[in-house]
Simulated assay, not measured.
Amino acid sequence: MLLWAFLGLLAKLAAGLPPLQVTAMAMAVGGMLGLGVTMARGRLGRLRQGPLAWFHGVAGLFGYHALYFAALAMAPAVEANLVNYLWPLLIVLLSAPLLGLPLGARRLAGVGLGFAGCALLVGQGAHFPPGAVPGLLCAAAGAVVWATYSVTARRLSVVPTEAVTGFCLAAALLAGSLHLAFENTVPPDGQQALAVLLLGLGPVGGAFFLWDAGMKRGDPRLLGTLAYGIPVLSTMLLLLAGEGVLDLRVGMAALLVAGGGLLASWPGRRSAPA
Rank of each mutant, 00 (worst) to 15 (best):
E243Q: 11
V186N: 14
L7N: 06
A181H: 13
F62A: 08
W211I: 03
V133R: 09
L99N: 02
L226H: 01
G16N: 13
A147W: 12
F6I: 01
M236N: 08
L240W: 12
G202S: 13
A139D: 00
L173Q: 14
S95R: 07
L120P: 01
T38G: 07
L180V: 15
A77R: 12
L256I: 06
G166L: 11
T161P: 08
W87K: 02
M1F: 08
A254T: 00
A207G: 13
G268D: 07
L108T: 06
A193W: 00
A163D: 10
R221K: 13
G104L: 14
L156V: 03
F69Y: 05
G57A: 03
A59K: 08
G242S: 10
A207N: 12
F208T: 13
G166C: 04
T185R: 15
A71C: 01
L240Q: 06
L194S: 05
A70M: 07
L178S: 08
F128Y: 00
V133I: 02
A119F: 01
G114N: 00
A254G: 01
L169V: 11
R249S: 15
F208D: 15
L20H: 01
F115Y: 08
P130I: 08
L255S: 05
P102W: 11
G8E: 07
A59W: 09
L194R: 03
R155V: 10
L103R: 03
R221D: 09
G224K: 05
G205W: 10
C118T: 09
C168S: 15
L113R: 02
G30A: 11
W54K: 14
F69V: 04
L240P: 04
K216Y: 06
A24Y: 05
L101T: 08
G63D: 13
L94K: 09
G114L: 01
R107D: 06
V92Y: 00
L198E: 06
L223N: 14
L199Q: 15
V257Q: 04
P97E: 03
L199K: 15
G260E: 00
V158H: 07
A73K: 10
G176L: 07
A272L: 15
I230Q: 03
V257E: 10
R270P: 15
V58H: 01
L2V: 09
S150T: 03
D189L: 01
A241E: 08
L2F: 07
A11D: 11
L120M: 08
L10E: 05
R41V: 12
L180H: 15
A227F: 01
A109N: 00
L137K: 06
P273K: 14
L198S: 07
L169G: 13
A5G: 07
L17D: 09
G206F: 10
W54S: 14
R43S: 11
G57K: 08
R48G: 09
L101G: 04
G218Y: 03
H65W: 03
D189W: 05
Q21V: 04
L136A: 02
L180T: 14
A24S: 11
A153P: 06
L248T: 13
Q21A: 06
H127Q: 06
V250G: 03
A73R: 09
S234D: 02
A77S: 12
S234R: 04
A53W: 14
A193D: 03
V22H: 13
L223S: 07
L67T: 09
